[in-house]
Design a binder for these strands. Structure first.
Ligand SMILES: [Mn+2]
Ligand SMILES: [Mn+2]
Ligand SMILES: [Mn+2]
Ligand SMILES: [Mn+2]
Lengths: 218, 218
DNA sequence: ACAATTTTTTAGGTTTGTCTAAATTTTAAT
DNA sequence: ATTAAAATTTAGACAAACCTAAAAAATTGT
């Protein structure tokens, strides 16, 4: 049996390891769990004893095979609940994260199998992130950061790096969402900001912004 | 903020007070929470400090107004989730209790409002129990125990006292469910067992059985 | 009324997950 | 190669919710 808290740690460690190539650091985990680094150290020791993570003092941490299996289960549940909330209960995509953060911990294989079926076996969540199947397998999509798009080509938004409410609300404000079509109008060398054409409308966005949006070529 | 555990206590105390007319006892609560009486004593003291219950040592316990408000919120959530699981995810009525026991603690007013709407504002849960509205108001139905039905009249099943899996499975086995139609064929004075006509089929049931089924006259 | 039994509470502990403050290790800067 | 700074871990505590064993209060039977 893996606790609520352990599930949150597993998910966070999974994500930190997936983005960077080396293990997750104590401080990074503390920030995402909203706890102190000392608490994280404690927890990592316990999870290491339980063989959920590979951990050597001062050396960062990564998931064991079992840990990764469990992490992917939580991610699957999180994203399926997000689809449910948006598709069935008509929540906006920027309102569902916190709720899914709780729902993901309901422990029942049957529940998730039936929810998946009820939703029509969705492949992606409302933020464009792939939903692992029952065996933890994820559909990989070829995607690049908005930062690196080229003039003359057409792109489709497929996901966001930052999924904070603030960011998602800003996206809504400038009329960008999943499957929006984008082309590069002009790249400003000075500060790497970009003038984009989003669904026909021209908008200027910062480098920080373009680093947080994933697109794929059409 | 009321914790997961407190919500379970509130619900249990509500139900114990609703059935019997005097307050809930420590032992009864311990049995339903699956804890020891000493743990219940501890918890009651804490909940009393927080003004969720009226509690005097050795005197049993009942809910304050605030406690009752919170209890009804949890009951509402529990029953709405049960409807969701049966109506939308096609679970059987005897499979949903444990799951709803977890889902009921997800904290979000909006979630429940939208779930209620999605389900079409149901009045009763899959076991025939009324669902409190947003303000905690419950639709009362005139109902009697199966034990007290009379010959010559027609009755409809409207709820169960015992909602354990064992009981619900037995009901399924003898072909009785919510809104089944029942008439009394014969009452055996010796042991108070009854021969019933359930949807046209004749079945004999014990006194213990009839004490656990609620019906209303048609 | 009084002893026996049952119910309830108190005392003292445990586990989980967190904290602050202090110590240690690693990394970065001279 | 030292030293300063940053990251991490340890030490010692705490709150929530539970436990067992023992004490106290309430109830029951005679
Ligand atoms: Mn979570
Ligand atoms: Mn998502
Ligand atoms: Mn519950
Ligand atoms: Mn029910």
């Amino acid at each position: 049996m893996v606790s609520f808290t352990e599930e949150n740690y597993l998910k966070i460690i999974y994500k930190l390891c997936a983005s960077g190539d080396n293990g997750a650091t104590t401080n990074a985990i503390a920030q995402l769990t909203q706890t102190k680094p000392s608490s994280v150290s404690d927890m990592l020791k316990k999870m290491s004893d339980r063989q959920l993570v590979d951990y050597k003092k001062y050396q960062g941490v990564s998931l064991t095979e079992e840990g990764e299996r469990l992490a992917l289960r939580v991610i699957r549940r999180h994203r399926l609940w997000e689809v449910f909330l948006v598709e069935k209960l008509s929540f906006a995509w920027d309102e569902v994260h916190e709720l899914a953060e709780e729902l993901e911990h309901i422990e029942s294989e049957q529940l998730i199998i039936r929810l998946d079926e009820f939703l029509g076996f969705p492949q992606f969540d409302p933020h464009g992130d792939p939903i692992p199947d029952q065996h933890g397998k994820i559909t990989k999509v070829k995607k690049i950061k908005l930062t690196h798009i080229e003039e003359g080509l057409q792109y489709k938004i497929v996901g966001m790096e930052d999924t904070s409410d603030a960011f998602l609300q800003y996206l809504t404000k400038i009329g960008m969402d999943l499957s929006s079509k984008v082309t590069l109008v002009e790249k400003i060398e000075f500060d790497q900001s970009m003038v984009l054409n989003i669904n026909g409308k021209s908008t200027t966005v910062s480098h920080k912004f373009t680093e947080n949006v994933w697109v794929s070529e059409l």
